[in-house]
Design a protein around this nucleic acid. Structure first.
Lengths: 171, 171
DNA sequence: AATAATAATCAGGTATACCTAACAAAAACA
DNA sequence: TGTTTTTGTTAGGTATACCTGATTATTATT
């Protein structure tokens, strides 16, 4: 009961947070980079950062996208030299998509940006936030898995599990 | 020093969080609603939710957009019956944009969605997260103000200051 | 070997967020 | 009063994210 009220408050602050993020990062292309991490081409990069050398079809399924869209995005990524495409040898229909070194760098670059606003948190707050995010993220993994047990698109799971922590464990 | 490491970890988790959010809310148009809060038409709604009945020009300045884009978005919002446009009487050049009741409802609807993932936090965690978000948000307000003291576009400030808390204070 | 299913492509489309250039109407200024 | 500034509009454009339909290879099935 009381909890609901607190949840409401926090929800509002999260919205505020997202909005400020959007405005604050208005500088340069950072914003776009960040925004682009989670849709279209960016999604694909993230997917590949965990599980590389995937057929386009698999990517399309995982990211819940039509093969046509996938083809388009992969093309664009290829043009930007972030992924490469090679025909599979076992099945000459399939095109294997792989990250280029450039693409790998790009992802790291994008993810290693430490938002300026984190600097105002002290160690205790950082660790609190860490715990909270762990809990929230875990719950979201579960939600995603459940929403999906209805087969039809396996979502990420594999791909997602600690993709990012992995990349960030070089500290 | 150590702090930097923790910041890095947290940054990674935030990226993870955003990504999961994007995927988890794949259901229905919720995702789009949410996403749309912070750009284009959505930004305008938010701006008006704090400070209503504004000339298009002012909106364009505050949201750092060309008047042409603003005109376009306001048009679209009008078509969706979320805002109304009336000519100002003192200055017949200006068009005053106002939220319709419908628009006001729309904003509240969008913002009062409590993300499912918050339910896994207990009261202590919620209050920790609240504090943390307060700190972060406050810092971002400052950043925005500073980035902006270089005149040229006054950003929000007025508009932003506790827009959302205000709306959420009905608990 | 003939047919069906699968991976991908091409062509064409919609929607959104933006932008620039050109221009009209109204207001401010000299 | 005439000129300049300001607000907004029209027209046209770019870029991204997606989608559907039709078609081509290639592999799987019968």
């Amino acid at each position: 009961m009381t909890n609901l009220i607190n949840q409401g408050k926090t929800a509002g602050k999260l919205v505020e947070f997202s909005m400020l993020q959007n405005i604050a990062e208005d500088d340069a292309q950072h914003k776009n980079d960040y925004k682009m991490l989670f849709q279209g081409q960016g999604k694909i990069l993230l997917a590949l950062s965990d599980d590389d050398n995937l057929p386009q079809k698999v990517l399309a399924d995982r990211l819940n996208m039509t093969p046509q869209s996938m083809a388009e995005f992969v093309r664009k990524l290829e043009k930007r030299d972030l992924v490469s495409r090679k025909k599979s040898v076992d099945d000459k229909r399939v095109t294997i998509v792989s990250l280029t070194d450039n693409g790998r760098l790009e992802i790291e670059k994008r993810m290693q940006v430490i938002p300026k606003y984190l600097r105002v948190l002290n160690d205790e707050e950082l660790s609190q936030l860490n715990n909270i995010l762990d809990k929230i993220n875990e719950q979201m993994y579960l939600d995603i898995k459940n929403a999906d047990s209805t087969l039809h698109n396996k979502y990420h799971q594999l791909m997602l599990n600690h993709v990012l922590t992995k990349i960030h464990t070089n500290d």
